[in-house]
Design a protein around this nucleic acid. Structure first.
Lengths: 224, 224
DNA sequence: GCTTTTCTCCACAAATTCATCACATTTACC
DNA sequence: GGTAAATGTGATGAATTTGTGGAGAAAAGC
């Protein structure tokens, strides 16, 4: 789960935020002033920082500026009503959001989850796919398409195709295929492989041309 | 202007809040106990509810819980000093803010306007929804609609649908689904998942087409 | 407290997939 | 061309996986 750093000089406010945040399932750490916040950020990686503007010694903006020199952690600023000019100032420094005191903790948490979702969305990996002419393979979705049309296959056919296409242009021995697709502890008939190659070829239609027999060894997925 | 509902069994307190709120320009209605509050909310739409925790018959939390089943109106809770445990309890129920008695009405009004401003400004971008053809999912409000009609589901069905649709177009193994939806410490029967898939499909009606069986693996939410 | 809903597990049905065999075909080598 | 080994293929029960209704337990609501 995400780890938050709450920075405020008022213990009460930190406590209030912590309670709700912990309830929401976040890991929460606290700092009571700007200097401590900078220090903590040097040592640890937080997913998000909730920082008060007004603090003795080092104020919120200066602290964010200092942290920005080595980390790009998202920040939500807490500011007192009427400090409207801060908003402008804050966006320059690179603050992600603003919450004006007195605030509702629920509201604050909604913004937290919104920002976290956003930064998570950016790091979402693209679908893992490959295509060989009109044969498309989506490894994540476990979908195989032939000329845009979905093809239904049995689990073993998928596994065979996946393994072979991932190791294309390599002669794969029967033994390798059996241990990789069936598992290291497979004791059955060696000819079972042939049968499944047959089924896979049937499913692939014209693109069975990619499945090449390597006589005396096994098979190869031939991406040309 | 915004319409408030003030719920408290003490007429004095309702009167005090009403006076100040009307002066601030709000429409104010009153209810003297939890049951009345729920009833009013069924019939009318309020922008915010100010609710006392301690009331005879139906207490504030139970009232909010009841209201939450059909409305998502923001709530400020009034609680007596020393009822600190209520804070946690309230978060579960979905309370926006807390004011401890005896409170300053001015302070209360500041929070009212803060929440109203926020829910006006932010409730739009904070809405976290997705739609797949006629199937709409509101992750924040936990509402699922089919062709505009709200569908009631059990908690597990929501969780399953949420997780699967958030990770759509991915083959999700039974194990992944069980650990993510049931929790990493689930020890029960693997077939329980099938049963809940069955129930979810039933609830989705024609849109059960999105829930695809991935034989030998698990299931996939297929957003096409 | 009692009622209602939800969850889990079970048992059986239905569908799919698998492993194996027997026989046909191909290939390599003489 | 002949022969043996390797591979292709159809068929077939067995085994596995998934769908589904229902019963009892557990949890939630009243």
């Amino acid at each position: 789960m995400a780890k938050l750093l709450v920075v405020d000089d008022e213990q009460k406010i930190r406590e209030m935020i912590r309670k709700y945040a912990v309830f929401e399932g976040y890991d929460v750490e606290e700092a009571s002033d700007g200097f401590e916040a900078v220090e903590r950020c040097e040592k640890e990686n937080f997913d998000l920082i909730i920082m008060d503007v007004m603090m003795p010694d080092l104020d919120g903006f200066s602290a964010v500026k200092a942290i920005r020199r080595f980390k790009n952690t998202p920040v939500i600023m807490l500011s007192a009503r009427g400090e409207e000019y801060d908003r402008i100032h804050g966006f320059e420094v690179g603050v992600d959001d603003y919450v004006v005191k007195p605030f509702s903790v629920k509201e604050l948490m909604m913004r937290v989850s919104a920002i976290l979702a956003r930064s998570r969305a950016v790091s979402q990996p693209a679908a893992d796919t490959a295509s060989f002419e009109g044969l498309e393979i989506d490894y994540t979705a476990r979908i195989v398409k032939i000329d845009g049309e979905r093809v239904e296959m049995s689990p073993k056919e998928y596994e065979l195709l996946f393994f072979m296409s991932r190791n294309c242009n390599m002669a794969l021995s029967r033994e390798t295929l059996l241990t990789e697709v069936w598992g290291y502890d497979y004791f059955g008939d060696d000819r079972t492989l042939d049968t499944h190659i047959k089924l896979l070829r049937r499913s692939l239609g014209e693109y069975q041309k990619f499945i090449v027999t390597v006589r005396g060894v096994g098979y190869r997925f031939d991406a040309q």
